[in-house]
Write a protein that binds this DNA or RNA. Sequence first.
DNA 1: CTGTTAGCGCTTTCAA
DNA 2: TTGAAAGCGCTAACAG
Lengths: 353, 353
Amino acid sequence: MQNGSARRPVTVIEVAQEAGVSPSTVSRILNGSAGVAADKKRAVEQAVERLGYRPNMMARHLVQGNSRTVGVLTQDIASPFYNDAIRGIEEGLMPHGYSPLMISGHWHSEQEGHAIELLLGRRVEALIVLGGSVPEAELHDVAARLPVVVLGRRIERPDFSGFSLVLDNFGGARRATTHLIQLGHRTIGHIMGLPEHADAQERLAGYRAALEDHGLPWDSSLVVQGDFREASGLLGMQRLLELDRPLTAVFCSNDQMAYGARLALYRRGIRVPDDLSLVGFDDLPGSSYSTPPLTSVRQPVHDLGRRMAEFVLARLNGQTPALPELELELVVRESTALVRVSPLPRPGPSSVR
Amino acid sequence: MQNGSARRPVTVIEVAQEAGVSPSTVSRILNGSAGVAADKKRAVEQAVERLGYRPNMMARHLVQGNSRTVGVLTQDIASPFYNDAIRGIEEGLMPHGYSPLMISGHWHSEQEGHAIELLLGRRVEALIVLGGSVPEAELHDVAARLPVVVLGRRIERPDFSGFSLVLDNFGGARRATTHLIQLGHRTIGHIMGLPEHADAQERLAGYRAALEDHGLPWDSSLVVQGDFREASGLLGMQRLLELDRPLTAVFCSNDQMAYGARLALYRRGIRVPDDLSLVGFDDLPGSSYSTPPLTSVRQPVHDLGRRMAEFVLARLNGQTPALPELELELVVRESTALVRVSPLPRPGPSSVR
DNA sequence: CTGTTAGCGCTTTCAA
DNA sequence: TTGAAAGCGCTAACAG
């Protein structure tokens, strides 16, 4: 059995020898950069085939001074939210001969710095940052050297030369809450995301604004804190249910927490949406198949990914395109319903519907 | 506003000049490859800082003949299943100074070929393949050049020099079905995955084996076809419910289809697990927060990812480690329960326990 | 300890 | 049309 490693890769020189031409000719044929006699072309192609030659991109890029690569700094490759964006980025990049170099910061500022270092070392031509918490100064430095677009973070520095793309979290949250109010709900809880997270703050603000819009009182005890993950949604809902205020609806700062909240309700035999309406945020792929399908605020993440890719590519070509702020859409499914007359559910055996 | 592109990156030469030393000295300091006078070291470090120098990895790798990179061919970066594996791979690679170069084939044999081409061009030192359908011949060729490990595919070629790692789908499915039988279920449906997919076939076989183990009759009308996605689970369950056989449990070939099936049941007001028990396969992160939390077969994907990474790294070092076949564990949650009413006049022989 | 020299594999002048 | 030569940015001998 082969060792599997070793065996030096074939080089142009070898191909050239095999085909009886010079390395430059091989290069020209491979890149179609100049006219070449048909017979030599055939000979080279055969040699390439026979030897299993594959151009060494590192060498090629070194001499050409480009890497055809765009760095993507994500927080968690495995997070359902960022994933969609990544796929969009891929789609935007590939047709132009670029590929993404992905790396995750794992919500860890230090690791993110490290990641950027690595990306820069690999000479990515542009950088797409998905959320996270790299210091603005660092982002700014990078943006001075190459096109940068950061999603989901508002960059305060007025001189930031990159592009910061923020979604209308406020508007989305306000729309979601308004939807609940229009269904007749008057006591609406909110499970908040990580409080230091701008998204969470804006969504809270949107929730509050909707309340004010309709002359409903603001009650801070109706807001509990979570961390964007399922478990915190479960805990949050439990705490909400312990209140003596009989709430009939809850708006969660993201879908994952809504899933957790849903489970807390299931355990207590509180039906959704009959006894309590639930709204999430993000519209994860799974949300259309949860029980019941979850009403949520959709962020056009996939589309956004593609646009960001195209954006940096355009910058690379010297253009200065615009990146429009996209509206967030409320997707009404089956987890929200008209408020019932008697808001107090009676706990009982776990029965869904 | 800065253009954001252009501005040639700093090179060693410039750093050397700035610090008043030779390029090799700079290199030595950066790599710690030899002792250097303290003052020169300080001077260089300052120059690096001042100029914002970052070594060009492509150049470094070119001369060193390695890329410190492992290719990861996944089907879909956004699939929750592969994601976990990817995270594991990352963890396995990073401590050794390697990074993953990820690319997705999108379940498209041709695109996968293209992806491998790209990876090879970037001189990845090893390749990790997650599922997919690249022709064996191609995999074999690659494996002759560098360490390859493929997950979730049995390679038939006896001379394959890579490592093929398959999970015990059969055993997992058998265990899941047996669990149902032990709960008293006698009419158990199965929603199958893509029939051309080995995983789907093996899980079907496991389901069938469990039936036989307990002397239950095999009934092909109880098996409907899906494609591993939610929508097909929903459709599949609908078809199952149209049967006049009153089934009390369904085993789905993966969690995503189980979610779809769950939704079909919800729509008809059939309760889980009270009226019907449901089992999935994969144990996706979301499954512990579905309603009800889903009983499923856990694949240690994350762990597997780490192990695969360590495996190829070891091969790179000339070792030939083993990759143990890991057992799949049935995670019993709340979507399965004792059968309520025995719908059939106890057919078949032997005990039920 | 440090500078000089010679490449890594490729493309791109520049002549022929 | 083609080959020879130079050089991308870096490190690894090899002298000193």
